[in-house]
Design a protein around this nucleic acid. Structure first.
Lengths: 348, 348
DNA sequence: CCTAGATTTGATACCGGTAACAGTCGGTGG
DNA sequence: CCACCGACTGTTACCGGTATCAAATCTAGG
């Protein structure tokens, strides 16, 4: 006997499959996908699990057909944090695709930030995600505010009032790393500051100071060097710190690029890392595991952050469409201190 | 009395409006739109006129929903350099969105490649894009061949018979770089090979040999060290080459990570780059511009390659759906030799 | 003029979601 | 103890097309 041939193509699972798996109605699944709040938490979890299990992704065609509503999210990025970007993109895409939104990616060059933002707005995006360092661009923020386009800044240290933000607690993370060094027995801990125009820099520095003072250690300005988040600036800062009459036994750089540069300088001076010098970074960029020894560093949950940013943004867009006004959200995610081979106890 | 609120959005007329106006069934209108030949000419004219009258344009969402024509493309990546991936993603997304296809991204860990490929197939993707290093995974290729899923390998040196491929000519690129070193005046040129299990490695080595022999230089096996594309393997290889009684004046590493390691070793030995030693890489990864001096290297047009891969894949999928069989395609794109600060003329 | 086979056309059931509204359930105030 | 309320979940009917198959019409041969 001939069964009806499904018109649906291969394995792709539908909202009904998810519903069956979760033991609820398709409508409830739809509600979960769209982040409606009238779903009990326990139900939401069941459904979310089913979605994960089945690898479900909503069919955008069906969605826009049924709702006559398509959410378009813009992602504006600029060159520098390229290591960051791929993870960021993956997380963001995953979430947009799960939510059936459309993600539009736009790259901008130095100086063209505001212009690129306008272009996105002109293309009709409903909201924009701003990874660092764009998230700190005054020009972009103003452009977006003017066109009343919702935005979510990711990993900015000091979020503007006009945008929502997703970030880790840079201060706490830097404090934790400094504390880690203190726990290892270090007393002379050098610090390389980040670029002064990025708001996270100041916060990381504050965390460093906080940990020192809590441990009753005096902050020695000679042990603090100014860097600019680049490898090259790290070389100079490390040269300065390691050239001191009484150099630090550990150096905490505000990002991995500068930490890598510090390792390079140490090697040039014949110092072994970590035997003669402990070096720690921040970001857990690709560089951290590329060089040898691999860097102890702070890992930001980048993919989670962009996922969260997308979620927040979609919520804001939906709320705005139904005429509600939403407060700007501030989300803090957890960081992780990742211990690798670049730290150890001081020699003496 | 409350009328039913039309869920349809503004002014657009539907296939039913056209059908009514033309006095036929919606199905017939659909046939006219799709240019099926089983419609009487007179009918076709009536319908065409109605379409023009009403300014009708078919709703693309409904169309792709009904015809299940949605093309889903999977992108399976493991752990290439982050910079590579992000560019790759951007190009791929741009093209899929242009073509109205859906892109699904899946990450896999070492050893789980085949499993991840199966997962994608299970999710109902119609074809898969394989960036390096996955493109050389025998397990993945077999999995895909078994499920008859079309695939496009990007940047593999030696494409499998079962897949299409988009790549640059690694041999020619390595030859060009070697020639560049020869032109600068170098005669003792060291080479660090890539991982033997990646097919591009052998091609790069061949290119190196070709350039030497064309310049009438003898290939000295002592100047060739085995590396594995990792920074650490680069450290060892560079140690070996620079420890020779008569070390090379230039070292050409098969990728940027190993070139960066070579720079580090040179610095440790008190050699200035490029004054005392020229170092070149391959890939133009983020690392190339992160370290100091920035590396002279070969740039692959990554975004273009992924764009092209998507295009080829969609063509194959469409052809296959309409029952045609397509030959596997081989596309070569142009590379660029990027000159930065890590090369110079030999000292003597 | 009739009937088999080919050509056109139509009715129906979907595609995979969501809007609107109708329950269901536990708690509350009278 | 019951009507009522609010929070949650399910039912039904679509969105605008197309695949499928049956019905209607046409064509040609006997």
């Amino acid at each position: 006997m001939q069964q009806k041939v499904a018109r649906r193509q291969g394995g792709g699972s539908t909202i009904r499959d998810v519903a069956r798996q979760a033991g609820v109605s398709p409508m409830t699944v739809s509600r979960v996908i769209n982040g409606e709040k009238s779903v009990r938490d326990s139900t939401r979890e069941t459904v979310t699990a089913a979605i994960r299990d089945l690898n479900y992704a909503p069919n955008p065609a069906a969605r826009s057909l049924a709702s006559a509503e398509l959410v378009r999210i813009g992602l504006l990025y600029s060159n520098p944090s390229a290591a960051y970007l791929s993870e960021f993109l993956v997380g963001g895409m995953e979430q947009t695709s799960r939510s059936g939104a459309q993600l539009i990616i736009e790259r901008c060059d130095e100086g063209g930030e505001a212009e690129a933002a306008e272009k996105l707005v002109g293309m009709g995006v409903d909201g924009i995600i701003l990874p660092p360092p764009i998230c700190d661009s005054e020009a972009v923020l103003q452009t977006l505010a003017k066109s009343r386009t919702p935005a979510v800044a990711v990993a900015t240290g000091h979020p503007a009032a006009s945008t929502s933000a997703v970030r880790i607690d840079d201060r706490a993370a830097a404090e934790a790393m400094t504390q880690h060094l203190i726990d290892l027995g270090h007393r002379r801990i050098g610090f390389i500051k980040g670029h002064p125009n990025q708001t996270a820099s100041a916060q990381r520095y504050e965390g460093y100071l906080t940990a020192l003072s809590r441990a009753g250690l005096a902050a020695d300005v000679a042990l603090v060097a100014q860097g600019y988040f680049t490898y090259r600036s790290g070389l100079e800062a490390a040269d300065q710190l390691l050239g001191l009459p009484s150099p630090p036994t550990a150096i905490f750089a505000s990002n991995d690029d500068m930490a890598a540069a510090t390792v390079a300088v140490a090697h040039r001076l014949g110092l072994d890392v970590p035997r003669d010098l402990t070096v720690c970074g921040f970001d857990d960029s690709a560089l951290a595991t590329t060089i040898w020894p691999e860097l102890t560093t702070i890992r930001q949950p980048i993919a989670d952050m962009s996922r969260e940013a997308v979620t927040v943004l979609i919520e804001e867009i939906r709320a705005r469409r139904s005429g509600e006004s939403t407060p700007r959200r501030r989300t803090l995610l957890d960081f992780t201190l990742i211990r690798r081979q670049s730290d150890g106890r001081p020699k003496d």
